[in-house]
């Protein structure tokens, strides 16, 4: 019979081993992905351009409608919510500042990342996971084709380009949403609203948002690929890993958001 102490330390030990193995596997994946994406092209093993463009269409272009609609609504919501408070102090024109700054610095990158994590992060995990269970990954390896170069790198490049691009679209459409509500419902002067937005926004607001988007893109790709490669069994595990990839990437996106926001707040 195991003593309580043995059970307790056994529990800690088993979980610690699992945790370290997870960290080890994830670091290996990150290391290999960046090697095949940025170093090996310099050594004459170029990235797969056609596959990358194909991924860009799937990740970026196909997300434009949903990102636009959500950004538009969030812009309107932001304008309404800030008007609710600003009305009391008679500073309605500051709606423009609030909408512009909170969208570009925070809401556009994070909303886009969450949408893309749900759409593309999950599909990365499902795609790689089902290839793993159908021995397609083994087949690639035996053909001398590195699965990370073949599968993950095009997705990474696509995400690193398309997530900032989608964020810019969300910035623009979100501000447009706030503008539309302000000039109609709030009866602000359109010219003043635009002028106020221009004055409120500095390049730094937009750039910090885009840096965040870039980091989120990397996080979503790595999490999706990690969960995909972890699949050992069949269809059931593909489903489980797909869910895990969405939950983990949304969680990590918010952790990274906190990190970057603090970084920009204290050092920029």
């Amino acid at each position: 019979m195991l003593s309580a102490a043995e059970t307790f330390f056994g529990f800690i030990g088993r979980n610690a081993i699992r945790l370290f193995k997870g960290i080890h596997d994830a670091s290996l994946l990150i290391n290999n992905t960046f090697y095949w994406a940025f170093l090996s092209p310099l050594k004459g093993k170029p990235i797969r351009v056609k596959a990358t463009i194909y991924e860009m269409v799937k990740v970026g272009y196909n997300s434009v409608p949903i990102v636009s609609v959500i950004a538009l609504f969030v812009g309107i919501i932001l304008a309404l919510q800030s008007a609710y408070q600003l009305k009391r102090v008679g500073a309605m024109i500051y709606v423009a500042n609030l909408v512009g700054v909170s969208l570009t610095r925070e809401l556009a990158p994070i909303l886009t990342a969450i949408i893309v994590a749900g759409r593309s992060g999950s599909s990365f995990a499902a795609e790689i996971g089902s290839m793993k269970s159908a021995e397609e990954i083994d087949a690639l390896v035996t053909m001398g084709i590195n699965p990370i170069r073949f599968l993950v790198v095009p997705k990474l490049i696509a995400m690193m380009v398309m997530l900032p691009a989608l964020t810019m679209i969300a910035d623009f459409i979100g501000i447009l949403g706030g503008f539309l509500l302000s000039v109609t419902e709030l009866q602000l002067n359109p010219y003043n609203y635009i002028q106020q937005t221009m004055n409120a926004l500095v390049i730094k607001d937009i750039v910090t948002g885009l840096i965040k988007a870039l980091a989120f893109g990397i996080v979503i790709t790595i999490v999706g690929a990690y969960q995909g490669f972890k699949v050992e069994g069949g269809a059931e595990e593909v489903g489980r890993r797909t869910t895990a990839s969405v939950v983990t990437s949304i969680f990590l996106v918010i952790v990274f958001d906190l990190f970057f926001t603090m970084l920009f707040y204290f050092f920029a």
């Binding site: 290839m131 159908a134 021995e135 397609e136 083994d138 087949a139 690639l140 035996t142 001398g144």
Partner: peptide
């Protein structure tokens, strides 16, 4: 081993074609 891999071909159980 990559050099050796060019000299081997494998048919997997489920064929493992890329879908």
């Amino acid at each position: 081993f990559n050099e050796v891999r060019k000299r081997i071909g494998v048919l997997f159980q489920g064929a493992a074609l890329l879908n």
